[in-house]
Each structure stands twice: as C-alpha cells, then as structure tokens.
C-alpha cells in the first residue's frame, strides 16, 4: 500500500528555537494516523507545515505525492483541515458557512444539503453558528472539511473541549470517514481516543519523534501490565502491585494467599496513558 504522507528530515526553526527537529514519518493511504505529544511538542507545527501554512526550514514533505513547497494549491483541493480553533463565521448560518466553502471548491449546489444531512445538522441548517454548542460547531467544521470529498483529512485536536457524548459522535464520524477510504491524520491529547481510533501512532516530544508504531506494539514496548492483589493483614486492607514481567509473580501471589486472606486480584492492561508517560519520562532522562 502506498503512502499518502511522506515526511523526510523535516525541521522547523523560529529564529533560535527549534519547534520540530529532523522528523521522518510516513502515513499509509486509508489509515488513521495519530500524532501524540505533550503541549508544545510540535504537533500543530507539523500539521501546519503539512498543510502549507508554514515554510520548512529543512527537509521535504510530500502530501498525496505532491510537494508542499511547490504544489500547495493542488494539495488544498484534495485535503480537508479541521483546526483546533472552531474557526467558523459566527454571523452566518450553518448552511451559509458550509455553502461558502462549497462555492470556493466550485462543486455542485446540492452537496451542501447532502453534507448537512450526513452530519445530522438538518435541524440547525438555518441557525446562526454563534448560537450553536461546541459539539455542533465541531460537526459543522467536519462537514466543511469533507465537503469536497478529500483524500486526506487533517484533524487538530478534534475532540478537544467536547463533552463525552459529542466526542463520541466525532470519533464515530472519523471511523465512518476512514471506511469511505479517506486517510486521516490527527493530533490529540486524549490517549484513550488515539488507542481506539488510530492504526498507527507517533509520539512527538520537544520536536522529535520518540516512538512510532501501532497502539499494540507501543503498549508492548512502553506500557506496563500489572497484577494488583488486595489482601487483609491484621484486620487492615493492603494492596500490592506486581509487574507481569516479574518471573516470580505466581510464587509471590501464592505466598500472599498462604499468609493472608486475598480480597481481590485484578490484572491491569497497559494503556496509551502509560505509554505516553513512560515515553515522556524516558526522553527527560535521556536529556
């Protein structure tokens, strides 16, 4: 399968500050790729460079086989972008906001109402955007970004600030988009969301890619799977956590069982949160 994004030795510097330092990444067509990292790690800078809103200090970025430095307007015809800020025209209605971009893309008139229906926004069609909830605004942004059936969709923190129900709707919609064959590149702080959505994840910290892989391989590599044993000792409850990697784990549980009354044994699977914290910790140690 070929790649829809190829980033090679990309560096972005602002005077003396290096926002992104020599990163190399590729994203497979038709997949959902997540770029994760703490605040200020370089996620938004990377997305902005890929969508032609920043110049590259060094390196190359190819989007859908086109060079961002040379063919940016051709790229814009084939990509959709949802930025972190809800940048809609507040004095226009939902229909007018979407239809404005439909006209810019020069596509058929009925597409606006079609997309409004797809995003279940018919009941808010003629409402001004200023009166909509954050979740509804996010749906309008998604509608605007997929209006022209892009081959690749960039989502910068798509569920940031949304309530769980709205966030779930957005995630379901991203899944639908993927099923229709659109590749998705997203950045997020939400590790659980990334775990559920992404086929592949890259962790970026202080401008450098520190880990890349599928959620499973990252969890295997950086996550901790533990066993949590709770028992009663002299009338008090006590809890011990043992890593599954410890070879003597069964022996230890057996010892507890012989000496005390075990109240519960739980296994704790590695999560993307653990992966994230371990990676950030690991990179701090290295520095």
């Amino acid at each position: 399968m070929s790649n829809c994004i190829e980033i090679t030795n990309f560096t972005k510097k602002y005077d003396l500050f290096t926002a992104v330092d020599d990163i190399t990444l590729s994203v497979t067509k038709g997949s959902i790729f997540g770029l994760l990292g703490p605040n200020g790690a370089g996620k938004t800078t990377t997305i902005k460079a890929m969508t032609g809103r920043l110049r590259l200090t060094a390196g190359e970025i190819s989007i859908l086989g086109l060079d961002v430095t040379k063919d940016i307007k051709k790229i814009h015809q084939q990509i959709g972008v949802v930025s972190e800020s809800q940048n809609l025209y507040e004095h226009l209605s939902v229909f007018e906001n979407i239809d404005f971009f439909r006209q810019l893309y020069n596509i058929e008139k009925n597409k606006t109402d079609q997309i409004i229906k797809t995003l279940s926004l018919e009941h808010k069609r003629d409402n001004r955007v200023s009166g909509l909830s954050k979740g509804l605004k996010q749906r309008v942004l998604l509608a605007r970004s997929i209006l022209h059936s892009p081959k690749l969709l960039f989502l910068d923190e798509p569920t940031s600030g949304l309530d769980p129900s709205s966030a779930k709707e957005v995630l379901e919609f991203i899944h639908k988009i993927k099923e229709l064959g659109t590749s998705v590149f997203l950045t997020t702080h939400n590790m659980e969301e990334a775990d559920l959505l992404c086929d592949k994840i890259a962790f970026i910290n202080k401008g450098s890619i520190v880990a890349v892989g599928t959620p499973k391989t990252l969890k295997d590599q950086f996550g901790n799977s533990d066993v949590e044993v709770t028992y009663r000792e002299n009338g008090h409850e006590k809890t011990e956590i043992h890593s599954l990697e410890e070879k003597s784990i069964f022996h230890k549980i057996s010892e507890i069982h012989q000496a005390h009354q075990i109240l519960s044994i739980h296994s704790r699977e590695a999560t993307m949160n653990d992966v994230f914290l371990n990676i950030v910790e690991h990179s701090k140690e290295q520095q």
């Binding site: 032609g52 972008v81 930025s83 020069n106």
Partner: peptide, 10 residues
C-alpha cells in the same frame, strides 16, 4: 482564525 480555514481552501 477564519483566515486559516480560507488559506487551506482553493
């Protein structure tokens, strides 16, 4: 920030 959206349009 609507200019950002316009600048990634045609």
């Amino acid at each position: 920030l609507t200019l950002d959206a316009l600048l990634v349009s045609p």
